[in-house]
């Protein structure tokens, strides 16, 4: 398992700026992942998450700033021996079987091909071993990619939206496997759009927005950043009318219900009840990480 060999963090990125031509993707990002720590990188589409992971894997050349994996340059092949990567876009050769893919990954990571057996079992896909990659479902491909990332005993796991396409059970098992590696000492940097799973597995959350870190901390700290409450109710008013009520910050649909975040839920409710006497199924809760994220990103958008 990922043994710490020295005091270096699993990943350290400092002062990262990156642009594709004249399209800026990252504008001054600092990030650190300690051994045995799981960091979730959250943020809307195009925030720069995949770009940051691309720099950490050595796929992209650093333009400004510094990236080090255990103090070493990921552009050097030998450094990547320390990495286990699940990229956002997968692409397996259709003619190879799962076992062949994982054995190949083992050898490319400098381990014996027999290590594949353990990785297949760890991810729970031993029964897929002889299946050709062309015949895998999306979720199965995702798990094969995790097995390929784990087979080299990485000290840093880089997982870019690795649970896309997984069902609920597979998702839970996926994060349990990752958490076990984290507990054994590997650093983990992950991205996901399912905020609840980040809240469950991550020790630290870093929120990116338009290439900048707009918030960072433990999931609990981020939620506490917001004094917001969430008010959910069934209403006859249109969403835009609710958004215009006093103390309403953001409005989103939750099935047939409307979900409104507010720093002053009492004030909001007085006005809402006055405007809609048929208001029902009322619930007031502290904000979850998801709402915290929505509000943080909206504020960043306003102040950008």
């Amino acid at each position: 398992m990922g043994v710490t060999r020295d005091g270096e963090p699993a990943l350290r990125a400092t002062g990262i700026e990156h642009a594709y031509g004249d399209v800026p993707a990252l504008r001054g990002v600092d990030l650190e992942v300690a051994p045995g720590e799981c960091v979730a990188l959250l943020g809307p589409n195009g925030a720069g998450k995949t770009t940051l992971i691309g720099l950490a894997t050595g796929l992209l050349a650093v333009q400004t700033g510094r990236v080090a994996v255990k103090g070493r340059d990921p552009r050097r092949a030998a450094t990547r021996r320390l990495l286990g990567v699940v990229q956002q876009q997968l692409g397996f050769p259709r003619t190879l079987t799962v076992a062949e893919l994982v054995r190949g990954a083992a050898v490319r990571a400098g381990r014996p091909a027999t290590a594949a057996l353990g990785a297949l079992a760890e991810v729970g896909i031993t029964e897929l071993a002889d299946r050709r990659s062309a015949k895998l479902s999306g979720g199965q491909q995702q798990r094969v990619a995790l097995a390929m990332a784990l087979v080299g005993d990485p000290q840093l796991l880089l997982l870019d939206e690795p649970t896309v396409g997984l069902d609920v059970t597979a998702r839970r098992e996926f994060w349990q496997t990752v958490a076990a590696r984290r507990d054994a000492g590997a650093g983990v940097l992950l991205t996901t759009h399912v905020v609840e799973e980040a809240a469950a597995v991550a020790d630290q959350v870093v929120v990116l927005h338009e290439g900048r870190v707009i918030a960072a901390g433990s999931p609990a700290e981020l939620i506490a950043l917001l004094p917001d409450r969430t008010v959910t109710a069934r209403t006859t008013l249109p969403a835009c009318a609710v958004a215009d009520l006093p103390a309403a910050l953001s409005v989103s649909n939750d099935g047939e219900l409307l979900r409104v975040s507010s720093t002053a839920p009492e004030e909001l409710l007085r006005a809402w009840l006055a405007a809609d006497p048929w208001l029902s199924d009322l619930r007031v809760e502290g904000a979850g990480l998801e709402q915290a994220l929505v509000v943080l990103t909206e504020r960043a958008g306003v102040f950008a």
């Binding site: 796929l59 450094t79 990567v85 876009q89 692409g91 990571a109 390929m148």
Partner: peptide, 12 residues
């Protein structure tokens, strides 16, 4: 297919 990109982040 993206397979070369996957191999590019390996240690080989």
């Amino acid at each position: 297919s993206g397979w070369l990109r996957m191999k590019k982040v390996s240690a080989a």
